[in-house]
Design a protein around this nucleic acid. Structure first.
Lengths: 104, 104
DNA sequence: TGAGTGTATGTCGGAAATGACATATTCGCA
DNA sequence: TGCGAATATGTCATTTCCGACATACACTCA
């Protein structure tokens, strides 16, 4: 499979998948989710530490209170981008972010 | 402003912005961009280290070669989510990811 | 009790990101 | 030189994510 031509690979599409691929993907997806959760808890911690309400934080990053609530609730509709944005906007230091990642 | 009512704040919308807010936002945006760039270079490094072509990596994460190219080129259409997915799929260890973040 | 403040949840139209594809460009090597 | 593999660039339809809003719930005081 490694040496297949691009055309062939593209033509195959989903048919190239197998159980192993699926499991592997699940594992990687799990790592990403774990990472997100770690950052999410860092957001809440940082926000509380600075005594900011969800509304305050939302204003800082030009977002909305409901989005912040969803971030902190680990809602699947929230991207890693938004989580990190919130982390930065909440006043988290570079070190804080590192630590959150370290917890992965 | 801190004590304004939610209704009032929501009604104000963009009008609450001022130069300071803008600069602050720019700074935070800059931090995010710097972080992305750091991770992007980690993706390429990790991929090369494992001797994977962009096509290989694309298959691993069910994406496409052109997306991988855009990730590595720092294309603005690429999300942090996708960058981290690529980093994980490329076989980067937790430590590799930490290091990339440390470079922020 | 009820008013005020903060957080959670569901929905929606518009905006942004995605994979796929076509095609161009670059690069290594026979 | 030329051929094939790898990478880059541009476009597009579909999917995903977003802010905004409405509203429900939780908690604290007076």
């Amino acid at each position: 499979m490694k040496t297949s031509k691009l055309e062939r690979l593209q033509a195959e599409g989903w048919s190239v998948g197998n159980a192993e691929d699926f499991l592997q993907l699940s594992d990687e997806e799990a790592r990403l989710v774990a990472l997100k959760l770690s950052l999410v808890s860092a957001v809440k911690k940082s926000r509380i530490k600075r005594k900011l309400s969800q509304i305050d934080l939302a204003q800082r990053m030009k977002s909305s209170q409901s989005r912040i609530a969803k971030i902190e609730a680990g809602d699947p509709s929230v991207s890693l981008d938004l989580i990190v944005r919130a982390l930065i906007a909440s006043g988290a230091t570079t070190r804080d972010i590192q630590v959150a990642f370290t917890k992965e």
